Simulated scan of single mutants.
Amino acid sequence: MQKPLPSDSLTAPSVAPTKRERRKESRPGELLAAALDLFVEKGFAATRVEEVAARAGVSKGTLFLYFPSKDELFKAVVRENISGRFAEWNSDFEAFQGSTFDMLAYCMNSWWERMGATKAAGITKLVLSEAGNFPTIAAFYQQEVIEPGHTLIRRILQRGMDRAEFRQLDLDYAVFSVLAPMIFMTLTRHSQGVCLPDQMVLEPKRYIASQLDIILYGLGPKPMDPAGPFSPPDAA
């Protein structure tokens, strides 16, 4: 009588994905990485989909299987590298246990580490430069990046007001006190230093510390300063 086969012999062996299958699965990511490189290097108008496909090692037809137009490719790049991070950043907000002063410092420093210091920050310069010629792209960026970014910063500032750590602020404009320094850092990094005096190198941590000091204390003496609270000079 023939012995029964071991039970594991009756199970169909798992088949490892072939090299072709693995490449197909990774292709969207490869296309997005190539597109990010070229958009940052050349801008939106000057980047051609043929170049993106060639850099990713595929044909233009293959690119269009995943992204039907250059506009849709750009939107996917923004979602992959910027707007897709807001869920993570909002989770950080919900979990943060420290003071709002510390939260603001954490926000600005972590933004630089996760975004500003990466190639994706070049998208901000691209949008600022080309939004006037591509209103659809500008509207998309407004909805996907600007509005969620403003909302998150407003939540941080509102938290400080609610906890009596910050005075009452005009939030419509106070958000720009946080945004403007970060945009300046981005432009400086992607403009070959043209925004800085000759020979100056911007040190991110030192710059952020200086901006936080000004945001939190203004330009007058700090509350604990022996010189006393700031009072404006008499009008002439």
Rank of each mutant, 00 (worst) to 15 (best):
M103W: 09
L104I: 12
L104M: 14
D37S: 07
E51L: 00
V127Q: 01
C107I: 01
F184N: 09
E80T: 06
V15N: 06
Q192G: 14
A174Y: 09
P13T: 13
Q192H: 09
G228Y: 12
A120Q: 14
F64A: 02
Y207K: 04
E88Q: 10
V15A: 10
D234G: 10
R48S: 12
A95F: 03
A76F: 05
A16G: 00
A87K: 12
I156Q: 04
K60D: 02
V58D: 04
K19H: 04
L104C: 08
L171G: 05
M108F: 06
L179E: 12
Q168I: 14
R206S: 13
R22P: 06
F64H: 12
A120L: 05
F101L: 09
S83F: 06
F64Q: 02
S231G: 00
L216R: 01
P181S: 04
G61I: 01
D37F: 05
G160W: 01
C107Q: 05
F166V: 07
F176G: 13
L10K: 13
Q158G: 02
A54L: 10
E41N: 06
S69D: 11
I137W: 04
S59H: 02
L152T: 14
R163D: 05
R85C: 07
A236P: 15
M108K: 09
F93S: 03
S26T: 10
A164W: 04
L171S: 06
F140I: 00
F67Y: 15
T124N: 14
G218D: 13
S231P: 00
S7H: 11
V77M: 10
A45H: 10
A120H: 03
R48M: 03
N90D: 10
G116L: 03
G122K: 06
L171H: 08
P232N: 06
I215M: 07
M200Q: 13
L36T: 01
L38T: 07
A46G: 11
G132E: 10
A87E: 09
Q143E: 15
F74D: 08
F101E: 11
P181L: 03
A87Q: 11
V145N: 09
L219P: 05
L169A: 08
N90S: 09
V49D: 08
G57T: 06
T18N: 11
